[in-house]
């Protein structure tokens, strides 16, 4: 099997702007007799945002783990960045993962390493020169506003800071797809907003395709309906125009299937009783 380096021009074009970057085709997965996902299909377009909603245990984290190849589906096909990930060996997956950044639920920072070592982990692992790594670590921590915590241990950080370090770690090696698993759950509204802003900034300024898992409607709507602009007045987060807002799509999971799929406005206007109970 060929990898990113060996793509034909035709495939390169097919993977250009407006093309799908993550595709699920009738994916099913069960743990023993607990069916978590049943025939799930969706497509994420390059530079767009998918927001997964659903009660806890509805399979949101499982979907992200399938994308990274940490789990294998029982059936169905998953494409990431033009490569199938559902039937690959761990060695193949390692190469595909260089274009994927995942922010785990609760962060999953390595607690034996400092913040800097966590953020620079992948670059060091790939054998990048030390100076280059620490420069990038500085840059990324500056981007998320945690420069002064560079030498702390994860245990010495607050919950919100830990999530932001997790985001820094996931973006440090410039993947083109970022997956966020409940990056704002359990945070106060002000801290949650700063995390949301990072997600918006990465999407709009670095052209990253994002998949966001949350059950906090407030954060989901904020990410869907805002955009980051960088102009003469500096960097600002402003309400997005209608076309931009339509680039973010919501998917509501329920009982192993997709209960709802649509944009922020459609979700807000929905009369579905289950959605209403979730929204209120």
């Amino acid at each position: 099997m060929a990898f990113a380096t060996a793509r034909s021009p035709e495939l390169e074009e097919a993977l250009g702007p407006g093309s799908p970057i993550v595709v699920f085709d009738r994916v099913s997965l069960a743990f023993d007799d607990n069916v978590v996902l049943r025939d799930i299909s969706f497509t994420l377009i390059k530079g767009h945002t998918k927001i997964f909603l659903g009660a806890s245990g509805s399979g949101k984290s499982t979907i992200l783990k399938l994308i990274v190849g940490l789990l294998r589906p029982d059936s169905g096909v998953i494409w990431v960045n033009g490569e199938r990930v559902d039937n690959r060996t761990e060695a193949d997956l390692m190469k595909i993962r260089t274009d994927l950044g995942m922010v785990f639920q609760e962060g999953a920072l390595f607690d034996s390493l400092t913040v800097a070592e966590n953020v620079g982990y992948k670059l060091l692992e790939e054998g990048a020169p030390d100076g280059e790594v620490w420069r990038r670590v500085d840059e990324v921590l500056g981007f998320i506003g945690l420069s002064e915590f560079i030498d702390r241990m994860p245990a010495e950080l607050s919950g919100g800071q830990r999530r932001r370090v997790a985001i820094a770690r996931a973006m440090s090696y410039k993947p083109r797809i970022l997956l966020y698993d409940e990056a704002t759950t359990g945070l106060d509204p002000i801290t949650a907003d700063t995390v949301d802003n990072e997600i918006i900034k990465l999407r709009d300024l670095e052209e990253i395709s994002s998949i966001i898992v949350t059950h906090q409607l407030r954060d989901a709507f904020r990410i869907a309906t805002h955009e980051a602009v960088h102009d003469d007045n500096g960097l600002r987060i402003v309400p997005a125009d209608a076309a931009k807002a339509r680039e973010a799509e919501f998917i509501m999971l329920k009982d192993g299937g997709i209960h709802f799929e649509g944009h922020a406005e459609e979700l807000r206007d929905s009369r579905d009783p289950y959605l209403r109970s979730f929204l209120s």
Binding site: V68, E90, M94, R97, T98, Q105, A108, D111, E125
Partner: peptide, 14 residues
Amino acid sequence: VTDQINALRALGTD
């Protein structure tokens, strides 16, 4: 149990 093993794999480490 804190997903650090999964995080290692996601970051390309066996």
